[in-house]
Simulated assay, not measured.
Amino acid sequence: MKVLTVQDYQRVRSWVYRYAKHLDITRWRYHFENGSKEDVLEALLFYQNKDGGFGHALEIDCWNPNSTPVCTFIAWDILKEIGCDDKENPIIKGMMKYFERGEVWTEHGCLWSIPTNNEYPVQPWYLFPNAPWFPEDWPPENYTNANFIKFVLNYFDKNSKIYNNVYNIIDYRLSFMSKLSNFFTFAKSDIEQTIETNDWIEFIRCLQKYNLKSNDECVQLFTELLNIMKPTANQDVYENCKKRIENEDKIDSHELDTMVDQIVNGIWSEHGLKCDNPEQKINEIASLGELWWPIYSIVDTLRVLKKYNRLE
């Protein structure tokens, strides 16, 4: 059984304090240094707009200050992470108002990108309506549908307009599943394919949780998803998706060992960002997410290792 040594933990901690945004430092302190929820909430509020949604590069690959579904769902994840996702939380109430306006979702789903993204520095996958490698007629409701459906079912009254509109979205998403094979032909990166397939996994689980489909129906939907993916998706993406479905996201000893190895040998190692092509590497770092996403994610990884007693 592998554990993360104190030395390696301190190396990660140094990276976080050097390069993280203040919000992520408050998350780190809350989980590992007896920090407070109040500090996390205070830092998070700087990203919330008057309309109740979140923007301002909370997702650092999109510098649109206007509220976007992606940033709003990241904020929701952080609230859940610290146990502050109650409906009475003013931040949640603001999010509800943001989505209730109906500007970022249609009967086909929730928008990944919004039109004003095109007016600010963003990675190409955040351009509206889609990244340049998408077909022109591909719908812009990608990647975030499960989060939107879960948010609405969790917080809105069953008699509300938005709640009832979610049923139309669910019906459309189910009818759209067969077209996923086309998606895998033009969205070829593992990251894009993983984000989309994770969205479908969470979507089906949501149908199961809220008794919108029976267990047998959801099993069949998972089978259909895998059958679509097997001949079209990247092999690693397919295998990881299959593993998530079959294991229900349970983490075994081998996976925990792998988490430790990835930290020890990753950007947190003694070599840091040492590379063969410094000019290329600085351009990658300048793409914003190169450092931020690993720092954002390391908090989740260390939370798992802490839960399973894998921190020395």
Rank of each mutant, 00 (worst) to 15 (best):
T106M: 09
F128W: 09
P115R: 01
N145L: 05
Y120C: 08
D171A: 14
N159Q: 15
Y126H: 15
Y143L: 09
N130R: 06
M96D: 03
Q123P: 04
N147T: 04
D171H: 13
N147W: 10
E141K: 07
P132C: 07
V166P: 03
M177Y: 00
N130H: 06
H108T: 12
K93A: 06
T144Y: 10
P124H: 12
P132W: 08
N154C: 13
A131V: 07
P124D: 14
S160C: 11
L111G: 03
N165V: 09
I162F: 07
W138N: 03
Y126C: 13
N164T: 12
M95Y: 02
E103F: 08
D137C: 04
N168F: 14
P121C: 09
R173A: 04
K93R: 14
Y126N: 13
I170G: 02
N159G: 15
W133N: 11
N168K: 15
Y120G: 05
F134G: 00
K161F: 14
F156M: 10
Q123N: 14
V152F: 04
F156R: 08
Y163P: 10
S175I: 05
V152L: 11
A146Q: 01
Y172T: 07
K150R: 15
K97P: 00
F156V: 10
E119L: 13
S160L: 11
Y126T: 06
P124G: 07
F176D: 12
N142D: 12
F134Y: 11
I170W: 04
F156E: 10
Y120K: 09
I170F: 06
N164Y: 08
Y163M: 12
G102K: 08
P140S: 08
F99C: 07
K93P: 02
W133A: 04
A131E: 12
F134I: 00
K158L: 12
R173L: 14
N145Q: 06
K93G: 03
P132D: 08
E136R: 07
L174P: 05
T116H: 03
G94W: 00
P115H: 01
D157Y: 13
G102I: 08
L153C: 08
Y155A: 11
Y98R: 02
I114F: 01
W133Y: 13
T106Y: 11
E103V: 03
N130P: 01
S160I: 10
F128A: 02
N117T: 05
G94Q: 01
R173S: 05
G94H: 00
E103L: 13
I169G: 09
Y167K: 14
S113F: 01
T106F: 10
L153I: 10
Y126P: 03
P135F: 01
N117P: 02
P121M: 11
R173K: 15
Y163F: 15
N164A: 09
F128T: 01
A131R: 12
D137Q: 11
F134T: 00
G94P: 01
P124N: 13
S175T: 12
N147L: 07
I162Q: 10
I114A: 01
N168Y: 14
V104Y: 06
L127T: 12
L174W: 02
N117S: 04
T106G: 09
E119Q: 14
S175M: 11
E141M: 06
L127I: 05
E119C: 09
C110F: 09
W112R: 02
M96F: 04
N168D: 15
I92S: 00
F156C: 11
E103P: 00
D157T: 13
